[in-house]
């Protein structure tokens, strides 16, 4: 199953999504990713002000089953993280595109977003993986 894939987001091959808002993006993991991970019990969040390049590992998502790395699909700087996930890691499972957002990134190269998959491309990508 590919889960929910909202049309207005862009997707990364490691199953992160971004929502573009001017010069910044909000980052999270896809419904497919949260379902594959199972119950999330801990999110090792990136630190605010961290600068990173696209595809760099910025954190970890721990589920009852395994650990999975969190990648930034874009280059830029972390300007906000979702601290509520410290107490409510389950938001990643319950609302991956809403309350389960992970970080806000100020884009270094706004064109990075264009390189990411659209909803239909991501859906195709998921079906090619299974």
């Amino acid at each position: 199953m590919s889960g929910l894939i909202p049309e207005d987001l862009r997707y990364h091959k490691e199953h992160e999504w971004v929502r573009l808002d001017g010069q910044k993006v909000t980052l999270g993991i896809s419904d497919f990713a949260q379902d594959a991970l199972g119950d999330v019990v801990f999110v090792d969040l990136p630190k605010v002000d961290t600068e990173m390049t696209a595809n760099q590992e910025i954190g970890e998502v721990e589920s009852t089953k395994a650990t999975s790395s969190l990648y930034s699909p874009v280059s830029g700087k972390i300007i906000e993280v979702n601290d509520e996930l410290q107490d409510h890691p389950e938001y990643l499972n319950r609302d991956p595109y809403g309350k389960g957002w992970i970080a806000v990134i100020e884009l270094a190269n706004p064109v990075d977003v264009d390189a990411l998959m659209t909803a239909s491309q991501y859906e195709e990508f998921l079906s090619s993986q299974s």
Binding site: G38, D39, V41, K65, N93
Partner: peptide
């Protein structure tokens, strides 16, 4: 079966 309703729910 690894899980049905969810690992934590079953736990």
């Amino acid at each position: 079966p690894l899980q049905y309703s969810g690992v934590l729910d079953e736990y």
